[in-house]
Simulated scan of single mutants.
Amino acid sequence: MTGLLVVTAVPAEADAVRAGVADPTVTVAPVGVGPAVAGAATARLLALAEAAGRPYRAVVSAGVAGGFTDHVAVGGTVLGTASIAADLGAESPEGFIPIDDLGMPPALLGTGSTVTADPELLAALRATLPTATVGPVLTVTTVTGTAASTEALRRRHPEAVAEAMEGYGVAVAAAQAGLPFAELRTISNPVGPRDRDAWRLREALAALTEAAPALR
C-alpha cells in the first residue's frame, strides 16, 4: 500500500500543496475543475494504483474555495466534515429539491448527495490544524455569484462553511474505492456577489502551503 493521494483542481493548487509537504508517501495531482472531471480522474488514479499493487490508503480533496463569512474569514483554513452536492436535484415552485428527496440516488454505495469525511482522517487533520474552521463544504457546478443564490444556499445549508467545485466528485471516487476521504480548503473569497478584484488568491494559496504539512 502506498501513501496519501491529494487531488486539487488546478496546477497552482497542486504546487502550493507540494511546497508545504515534502513527503514521498504523499502524491499530489491536479485533476481538473468540477465534480465530474475530478471524480473521474480520481477514480482513474485510484484504479491504476490498485492495479499496480500499490493502492492508496486515503484521499484528500484540497484547494482554494469561497467561504461563508459568518463562519470563516478570507485567508482561513477549512476542514470539511462532509462534502455535499449542493446543486444536484431539481427546481420546483416550492424551491430546490435535493436529489435524495427525488428517489434517484446519484451514486452507488448509498452516498446520496452527501459524503461524510472519514472520522479518523478528519480527527488527525484537526489535531494538526487546530485553528481550522470545521463544517460541511458544498460542491457546486456553478460558483455562487449573487446575493439571492447565496441566501438560498444559506437557507438550505446553514452549517456550511465553504463552497468549492470538486469535493463531492472526489469523495464519491474514494467511497467507491473503499478509502477514507477528507476535504481541505483555504478561503480566497467570500461566497456571494461575484467580485473577482476582491479575491485573495495569492493569500489563499499561501495558506494552503502552510496547511499542507498536516497531510504528511
Rank of each mutant, 00 (worst) to 15 (best):
Q176L: 11
A162C: 09
T150A: 15
H157L: 14
A173P: 02
P190S: 10
E183M: 03
R194E: 03
N189I: 09
Y168C: 09
V172S: 01
A182L: 05
D197H: 03
R155C: 08
T150G: 12
E163N: 11
A152L: 13
P158Q: 11
G169P: 04
P190Y: 03
N189A: 15
A174E: 02
S188Q: 02
A160N: 06
D197G: 01
R194G: 04
E151W: 00
G178W: 02
E166K: 12
V170L: 12
A173S: 10
A175T: 14
G178K: 02
R185G: 06
R194K: 05
A174T: 02
G169T: 02
A177V: 07
N189K: 05
P193F: 07
A174Y: 01
L153S: 00
L184D: 03
P158K: 11
H157C: 13
P193K: 09
R194Y: 04
E183R: 03
I187Q: 06
G178C: 11
P158E: 03
E151Q: 14
R154T: 15
A164G: 15
Q176F: 00
T186Y: 12
L184T: 03
V172T: 09
V161Q: 04
G178H: 07
R196N: 01
R154Q: 15
R156S: 13
R196T: 10
A174V: 00
A160K: 01
R196Y: 01
R185N: 10
S188M: 07
E151T: 12
P158R: 10
A164R: 05
V170I: 14
G192N: 03
F181K: 00
E151M: 02
E183K: 05
P190N: 05
V161K: 04
R156M: 11
L179W: 03
V191N: 03
L153Q: 06
S188V: 07
